[in-house]
């Protein structure tokens, strides 16, 4: 009988948080787009020169965005609670299970993340030694938590600017808070894109880990002593 070493990679709680967050964040971004459409003033450029407008008519029409502000707001202000509570429980879980020690960037993380990047770019051969996450992952997954908190705070500021005037002030005013909320959303989209590419590149074993929780240890010699013994036994017979 063939045997393999597996590691328990993702605890059940984290898998739930992850897979709840995925559709909820998608709903938040989509409904946010329905809202943004009503005053779509952001662009990349300077003066009269626009490099990229957020967004153009074909983009809106393809996604069926126009004239759905009320719908967008109703979705946004219902699912904000799910996004908030799921995120809050996730962070609390990280703290109480001590899982945060595997996730927060450690001392070497800044130096090592560079080596990880070089490895991904096929410039460097090996990866630095790691526990659950490599240095780049530690940084990315920590930043994405901070982005979530940022989205909640900037969102709260533009949702109730009179009741939370101090928060609006800290974020640089109402207009800035809205812009920051938008930029964070773009960053979430960027995160999703990179995350998706990395997951595809990492392959099935890694992806399965986020569903079943375990990952088969990838070693050329991941055949146990027992197995070798039994194989030898078969050969001698």
């Amino acid at each position: 009988m063939q045997q393999r070493t597996i590691i328990k990679k993702h605890p059940l709680a984290i898998r739930w948080f992850h897979w709840i967050n995925f559709p909820v964040l998608a709903i938040m971004i989509w409904s946010g787009l329905l809202i943004y459409w009503a005053n779509d003033i952001y662009r990349l450029g300077w003066g009269d020169k626009t490099l990229l407008k957020f967004f153009d008519a074909p983009f809106y029409n393809t996604l069926n965005i126009p004239y759905r502000l009320a719908e967008g707001m109703s979705f946004h202000f219902v699912f904000m609670w799910v996004f908030f509570l799921n995120g809050l429980l996730y962070v609390m879980y990280l703290i109480f299970s001590k899982e945060y020690k595997l996730l927060l960037p450690n001392k070497q993380a800044w130096k090592e993340s560079w080596q990880v990047l070089l490895h991904y770019l096929r410039i460097r051969k090996g990866m630095p030694a790691q526990l659950k996450y490599n240095a780049a992952q530690r940084i990315a997954y920590t930043v994405v938590i901070l982005m979530g908190i940022g989205s909640l705070l900037t969102g709260l500021a533009i949702y109730k600017p009179v009741q939370f005037q101090g928060l609006v002030y800290l974020l640089g005013g109402y207009e800035w808070a809205r812009a920051e909320h938008f930029i964070l959303t773009l960053l979430f989209c960027l995160f999703f894109l990179v995350h998706l590419i990395q997951v595809i590149a990492a392959g099935w074993n890694n992806f399965r880990g986020m569903i079943t929780g375990f990952e088969v240890v990838k070693k050329a010699d991941n055949i146990t002593e027992q197995e070798k013994a039994s194989e030898q036994e078969t050969n001698t017979r």
Partner: peptide, 15 residues
């Protein structure tokens, strides 16, 4: 913190 717990299982089990 230690790395994740390891376990030795058969490939049938994995499947």
């Amino acid at each position: 913190m230690k790395n994740q717990t390891e376990e030795i299982v058969s490939t049938t089990q994995i499947r």
